[in-house]
């Protein structure tokens, strides 16, 4: 046992990395590991991942194209909407103008009618006033003649009706 230990200690002295007796073992298992990894990667993993990546980039570009298309359609729809809005605005202005013009015409007609009525009434009233004024002057002359006749009678004299009338008329002119 002791001699074995001494032998082992001589063989294993120094770095384990430089123990050439383990090299065949390490190289054998390393080559197996590398071949397995290579086969796993090149046969299964890498084609699968590259397929997934290609599919994803295809999906993304499709989606981007669809988004672009939708954006275009949204822009078109917006333009149509804007146009409809502008048309409606113009139409509403037109209708408002029309209504205003019609209302103005009605108003003008009513005003003219009213003015006419007022003028007619005014003329009537003026005629009435003139008539009343004329009749008043006449009545004053009659009253004056009656008063003058009564005064003459009251003074105890009598006078000719014609003379009184002439005198009153003469006085009223004065």
């Amino acid at each position: 046992m002791a001699t074995e230990n001494v032998v082992a200690q001589e063989v294993e002295s120094g770095m384990p990395q430089l123990d050439f007796s383990t090299f065949p073992n390490q190289i054998f298992w390393l080559l197996i590991a590398l071949v397995v990894i290579y086969l796993v990667l090149s046969r299964i993993a890498l084609p699968r991942i590259s397929g997934v990546l290609a599919e994803r980039s295809g999906t993304i570009s499709n989606d981007l194209a669809a988004a672009e298309d939708l954006k275009l359609r949204a822009t078109e729809a917006e333009a149509v909407y804007e146009k409809a809005l502008a048309d409606a605005r113009i139409e509403s202005n037109r209708i408002a103008d029309q209504a205003r013009v019609a209302a103005q015409a009605d108003l003008d007609a009513a005003m003219a009618d009213a003015d006419q009525k007022i003028a007619a009434q005014t003329a009537d009233a003026e005629a009435n006033i003139a008539e009343i004024r004329a009749s008043a002057t006449e009545n004053v002359a009659i009253v004056a003649k009656d008063v003058a006749e009564a005064l003459v009678a009251a003074m105890g004299s009598s006078a000719d009706q014609a003379t009184i009338d002439a005198a009153v008329t003469d006085r009223m002119k004065g």
């Binding site: 383990t22 073992n25 197996i32 299964i44 993993a45 699968r48």
Partner: peptide, 28 residues
């Protein structure tokens, strides 16, 4: 140690292979 002896090298190389399989094959 013979060239075919399963050693700690074998063990840890196998674990590395296992990790690669887990990440790239099982993961995807």
């Amino acid at each position: 140690i013979h060239w075919y002896t399963p050693t700690n090298v074998t063990l840890w190389l196998a674990l590395a292979v296992l990790c690669v399989v887990l990440l790239f094959v099982v993961g995807s």
